[in-house]
Design a protein around this nucleic acid. Structure first.
Length: 857
RNA sequence: GCGCAAGUGGCGAAAUUGGCAGACGCGCCAGCUUGAGGUGCUGGUGGGAGUAAAAUCCCUUGGAGGUUCGAGUCCUCUCUUGCGCACCA
């Protein structure tokens, strides 16, 4: 508790009024709070030592309690920030008092677009604006009195930090995924296997960046291969690889975006349109981890909704990959058309095929059209699909379009010739980019068949009263037999099993699991991000910069305007002095390239997610210059020491942040962590053992009858007080009060600094915890704050004489109050454990009221 | 369209495991206090019937039905709102 006395050196007590000079007022709060904050700072009260450091108490269990670190925006702290931060602060203080070593740190997620966009407008270097914003955030957070160990503070833009971000990138670059052993291994072990002959040289069959033909290419003995072939093979295994492929290009942001950053064909940040463009980009083979990223969700104590979102994003589905031979393609034999289906049991009803417009087969056909091919029409359709932005594709809805390619496939089950169409409802990015269409049992295929008058065969018996179109439900298979196999009468599961066995026997198909998850696009064409520790020789081959040459720092730029070009260009390409260097100067190992070889640096930078993928590890050991985190520190803070059955996966004991990161940050960080785990750099399979999402703090807004919104200052209340008659001043029209996000245009943004000035930080923190359940979104109501302030005032009055400032005691000890106190302590402790701060506070209010009524404690 | 949450007084909400619905706060009402009002103090406050005042009775957790001695809580259907995914074969 704060000292119940004004400081001795203060000239006069900060008073509410002359009668009560020692009343708890905003002025008093604003005097006491900084005084204690200063003392905590001077004494290092919240600094926690690591194992091996002076003052470390090995007898205590550990607790790693973490917030999602903020992007320090120029606008300063939002009232939403302190909500989660107050929660973790309460938990941290509680755990310290109940015998834990608590790691409770704060840092800055400081690379990002806003600072760069500001630099484009003003020419001010992003580091200047970012450092300034960090200073503001730090000042604001310190004023809240959060018990962070500030000695561990860092920013992702510190070269001492991003040096290790680059180092981890190189670990991923120099790793491959061993699908047999189901974990990543150093790439040197793969090379050794090739050299020893333990593994025959081949392109990674799981490499998405290679076509099936490239993968099928056969290689001779490793030693007989030229360096280029060896390189191609090795690169096809790397977990970080370069690929020329269609990316989500956002011209407005001047950069490509990851799939996860695109929502409904628009950028997650800024809401700008996104187009498809071919671009050579760094990718992470996150798909190699799809199964483990999915399965290990069972190990963590996370909100169910977040686990569901992640597993849906990973999108596992079981089925079969089936080859359909192609008939009628000019120029003789061609490889079969491979499809993925989750319903192989319906293959007897596959009456046509559809390939994506981007499918290589379409290109083949355009080169050598069949007699039935309307080449002009086909070309026009493919061109149109290619130029369409994703926004346009979305806007067109689900009306089916498509063109017959003029060639046919043979259904291996029925031996019938079925036409191959192309249509943009089949996506190149999922499965094989080709489907067997079964209109009888698939709504999309049904729509398409109806639209183009293609034949429909039902192979699952619908119920008697079935009026609908495609039937997706359970039922016995019908019309599904050939000379070798019959599915008739079987339910869906049995039919699937039977047909897959048959397909595997005849070599037409295999059992197969497919994921929606795509590899992670990791290049951005921006300035304000981590440079890649990679250079290219004159032939365009890439080489890593050696570890001891890190960090590779960003060059200064004269101006930050994007390069104007039809082709997307990274901004760093303008820094030609930096780009052009030699292998030696860049720090490439001499065994890879001679030191005088001219090289060009990678001009793309890493996305904003990079720094947040491992910052929790750096907290454990933020000053380490030898390693990204010492093994001892990581073992102590990340590995669970309690056998209470809670976090099986270890990792951070409590991680609180918004659910907007349910897929993006949390999936990416898990991926990096798992690679580091496989390579033996960290000890736990998951980074975050327990995750909690705080709700959003909303605000009141006003809505006209036409649902348009009115700024809060353009509304007045008329009629009975509290009756809720809200009138728009300008028009005199009635408006309704609704709850909406805070926004500048609605003028309902609350500024934390103002609230602290009016009530003090303790009232602010108390209010945010009292508003409702931590996980719920709830509206900010300025009127309610006063209730929390009054409570603190009553607590103060309970123990401090408002006239003299002396401590007050009840005239006599009361068993009843004593019992009540202990009931309160028990209740509050239980509530804190379950993050139910609102009811903990209510309980304390009850006790205070009871004690006041009893005349004190 | 599919999936996941949620719906309780005038408002934010509580009820942790099926056991007194509405704790606690805001607002409102009455009174006190201050030289005059905001952030002081005390008491009252879900709705209805009833009473001089009490007692007392009835109703109430979006809606309809069900299970149970007992339902805000469990089940079925349904409506509304929010969020997520969305041609993923």
């Amino acid at each position: 508790m704060p000292q119940p006395h004004a400081p001795a050196n203060s000239a006069a007590p900060p008073s509410g009024d002359a009668e009560h000079p020692f009343r708890y007022t905003a002025a008093l709060a604003n005097l006491i709070e900084p005084q204690w904050q200063k003392r905590w700072e001077e004494r290092g009260t919240f600094i926690v030592p690591n194992p091996g450091q002076p003052g470390f108490d090995a007898s205590r269990p550990k607790f790693f309690c973490m917030d999602m670190f903020p992007y320090p925006s120029g606008a300063g702290l939002h009232v939403g920030h302190p909500e989660g931060y107050t929660a973790t602060d309460i938990i941290s203080r509680y755990r310290r008092h109940t015998g834990f070593n608590v790691l409770h740190p704060m840092a800055w997620d400081a690379f990002g677009l806003p600072a760069e966009q500001y630099a484009i407008q003003t020419g001010v270097h992003p580091s200047i604006t970012t450092r300034k914003a960090i200073d503001t955030f730090r000042r604001q957070l310190k004023r809240f009195g959060f018990s962070y160990d500030w000695s561990r503070e860092f920013a992702t833009i510190d070269p001492d930090y991003y040096r290790w971000t680059q180092w981890i990138f190189l670990r991923i670059y120099e790793a491959w995924y061993d699908a047999q052993r189901n974990h990543a291994r150093p790439i040197n072990e793969l090379i050794a296997e090739f050299e020893s002959g333990a593994r025959g040289p081949c392109i990674n069959p799981n490499a998405a960046e290679f076509s099936n033909e490239q993968k099928a290419r056969t290689f001779g003995a490793w030693k007989s291969l030229n360096r280029q072939d060896q390189r191609t093979i090795i690169d096809s295994y790397r977990l970080a690889y370069l690929a020329q492929q269609m990316v989500n290009w956002c011209p407005k942001l001047g950069t490509a975006l990851a799939n996860e950053e695109v929502i409904d064909g628009r950028s997650e940040r800024g809401d700008f349109p996104v187009f498809r463009k071919p671009l050579k980009q760094w990718m992470f083979r996150i798909t190699a981890y799809a199964e483990r990223l999915l399965n290990d969700l069972a190990l963590v104590k996370w909100p169910e909704s977040t686990r569901v979102q992640q597993s849906e994003w990973i999108g596992r589905s079981e089925g079969a990959e089936i080859d359909f031979s192609i008939a009628g393609l000019a120029g003789g034999a061609s490889p079969p058309l491979r499809v993925f289906t989750t319903r192989p049991d319906t293959i007897f009803g596959a009456t046509f095929m559809v390939v994506a417009p981007e499918h290589p087969l379409v290109n083949e056909i355009l080169k050598k059209p069949a007699p039935a091919t309307d080449a002009a029409k086909l070309r026009a359709y493919v061109e149109a699909a290619r130029n369409k932005s994703d926004v346009d594709r979305q806007a067109e809805g689900k009306d089916k379009t498509g063109v017959f390619t003029g060639i046919y496939a043979i259904n291996p089950a029925t031996s019938q010739k079925i036409p191959i169409w192309t249509a943009d409802y089949v996506l190149m990015g999922y499965g094989t980019g080709a489907i067997m269409a079964v209109p009888g049992q698939d709504i999309r295929d049904w729509d398409f068949a109806k639209r183009f008058s293609l034949s429909i065969v039902r192979t699952v018996q619908p119920p008697k009263d079935w009026q609908g179109d495609a039937y997706l439900g359970e039922g016995p298979a019908i019309a599904s037999a050939n000379a070798e196999v019959s599915l008739n009468g079987l339910n869906i599961a049995d039919a699937k099993r039977t047909i897959i066995d048959w397909l595997e026997r005849t070599g037409c198909g295999v059992r197969r699991i497919n994921y929606k998850l795509r590899d992670w696009l990791f290049s951005r064409q921006r300035y304000w991000g981590e440079p890649f520790p990679i250079v290219f020789d004159s032939e365009g081959n890439h080489y890593p910069i050696s570890e001891k040459s890190l960090p590779l720092t960003l060059p200064e730029m004269a101006d930050y305007h994007p390069i104007e070009s039809d082709d997307p260009q990274p901004l760093l390409a303008k820094a030609s002095d930096w780009i052009k260097t030699t292998a030696g100067a860049a720090g490439v190992a001499a065994k890879l390239l001679p030191p005088n070889a001219p090289v060009k640096r990678e001009a793309n930078t890493m996305p904003g997610w990079a720094g947040s993928c491992w910052y929790y590890l750096r907290y454990c050991d933020p000053k380490n210059a030898q390693r990204f985190v010492s093994r001892d520190a990581e073992r102590y803070w990340m590995v669970s020491t309690k056998g209470d059955g809670s976090p099986h996966a270890g990792g951070v004991d409590l991680y609180i942040g918004g659910n907007e990161h349910a897929v993006l940050h949390l999936l990416y960080a898990r991926f990096w962590h798992k690679v580091l785990f496989d390579l033996g750099e960290v000890l736990t399979p998951e980074p975050f053992g327990r995750l909690f999402h705080q709700g959003m703090i909303l605000s009141y807004a006003y809505q006209r009858a036409d649902r348009s919104l009115v700024p809060i200052d353009a509304v007045e209340v008329r009629g009975e007080p509290g009756g809720g008659n809200f009138i728009e001043t300008a028009t005199g029209q009635k408006v309704t009060q609704i709850v909406a996000k805070m926004s500048k245009s609605l003028k309902n943004v609350q500024n934390p600094d103002d609230v602290i000035a009016e009530y003090g930080a303790d009232t602010f923190r108390l209010y945010e915890m009292y508003m409702g359940p931590l996980e719920a979104s709830k509206p900010w109501n300025p009127r309610d704050i006063a209730g929390c302030f009054r409570f603190l005032q009553r607590v103060w009055r309970l123990v401090v004489d408002e006239q003299t400032g002396a401590l007050r005691f009840a005239p006599s000890r009361s068993d009843e109050i004593e019992k009540h106190l202990h009931r309160t302590i028990a209740k509050v402790a239980g509530d804190i454990e379950r993050l139910a701060f609102n009811t903990a506070i209510a309980t304390m209010i009850e006790f205070t009221n009871a004690a006041t009524a009893a005349g004190g404690i």
